[in-house]
Design a protein around this nucleic acid. Sequence first.
RNA 1: GCGGCCAUGGUGUAGCGGUUAGCACAAAAGGUUGUGGACCUUUCGGUGAGGGUUCAACUCCCUCUGGCCGCCCCA
Length: 477
Amino acid sequence: MEKKEKQDKMKPKKVKHVAPALTHPADITDVTAPVRNKRLPQTVRGFRDILPEEQPYWRYLTAACEQIAETYGFQPITLPMVEATSLFERAVGKVTDIVEKEMFSFADQGGESLTLRPEPTAGMARAYLQHGLVNQPQPVKWYLIGPMFRYQRPQYGRQRQFHQWGCEIIGEGHPTMDATLMLMLMNLFQTLGLPVALQVNTIGDKECRPAYRRVLLEYYRNHRKELCEDCERRLAKNPLRVLDCKEEGCRALRANAPQFVDHLCTPCREHFMEMLEYLDDLDVPYVLNPHLVRGLDYYTRTVFEVWAADDEEGKTALAGGGRYDDLITELGGRPTPAVGLGLGMETTILKMKEREVPLPPTPRPEVFIAQLSQPARKKAMQLFEELRKSDVRVAANFSKDGLKPQMEMAARLGVRYTIIIGQKEIVDHTVIIRDMEAGMQETFDFKKIIGIVKHKLEEEIPVVHTEAPILHDATST
RNA sequence: GCGGCCAUGGUGUAGCGGUUAGCACAAAAGGUUGUGGACCUUUCGGUGAGGGUUCAACUCCCUCUGGCCGCCCCA
């Protein structure tokens, strides 16, 4: 019958003329129609599956982020992935690239414009205001790990759905906040064993930025011809961004460009200097990067990014963040200083793979239960449950019939013992326990099996874990 | 959003205007019916979708879908 299908597919080839109107898949109702839609379903553009084989990285990184956040006093929070579009327009800034062209927005059935969050900070700020967190001890320190969305051209390691670890300290403007946030971040990368460089800069605040902007504009106006096309445009829109252009000419120009550090107002300068002092005292290595400018409008004063150590231009920023003292006010709250960071999970995992960061071993099953015949299968399933409840990592494949494939699987899983229950054992009320390494086996009373297995597992030196095995069928870990 | 490259079984790949579309890995079954990762045999499974050119298209052209690279921007 498999052949018949094949023929059916090939037969009605040449019908020619009268090209049938394109049929929408949903319109095909005739089940008997010989030609079926061959198109397999697939993920939509910019979205991807993270398969089990990649999960160890995600688990490890997630655990590392959560753990370090909690040791620094951050509390977990979960926020909606969808917010009103206006939230991001107000928070991120209308003229930013994110809002101008990267928002994943759509209208719901009621006509309201919604947006899949492109970054975590706006939602954090919204939650802070909505739940009246001003009335709790300040600062409020929150972290989350979750998916973010940007409607952009997908590329390797840059999907439309990606994941970020976000940390925010809201309600405290002291420079120690900025410093500890960076300290925490650098400690994380140290834990992961990823060599990175912390890039730090300040972009002033409402007081001093306009003045610096003017100075900068003046400087570049005299060199307009040397700028690239994009930068000419940037000059009008957001002159600060000219500073981090990657074009040769622009990079040469910026070397002599006026730097913000020389044009800071006194409070901003003091904040910056004090913060650097803390970083120095804490032995946090950093690079003063006067050209670091971030793409979101809400930043004030401190901005920072973490680049891979071998990355000279910030092509692969693994994390970034900064202070946003005006954001809460922008959203209608009373003046509330805040500072936060975001870490790209995908980019970090890519780096981890590149650097071959060792992962903690995945626990693998210790015991495999093999069975032969229907009554044995039932008994094996019971035993599986009992072992599982006794905290033994046990695996089995009850759908297999022959003993050989089950032994093969046990071997592949790398278990230390295989319990074999066959017809003979059912009659005798016994089981066979096979030591997979020694290749020897003994028969035991079924009733004592749990105790014997636990005893055997505890007695001997645990086997060194190797790579994560692929587990089929029933497995408990 | 702009420019470019690409698309062959689950994965990695070979090839050609007319071939039974080849190979490797993976998967499944078997190798005297109760025992191991090796080996052997067999099986499963593919030209992304739609249209066009042609006697003939996996191959050439167009559209769509998706991926990748550069730009933009970021994480």
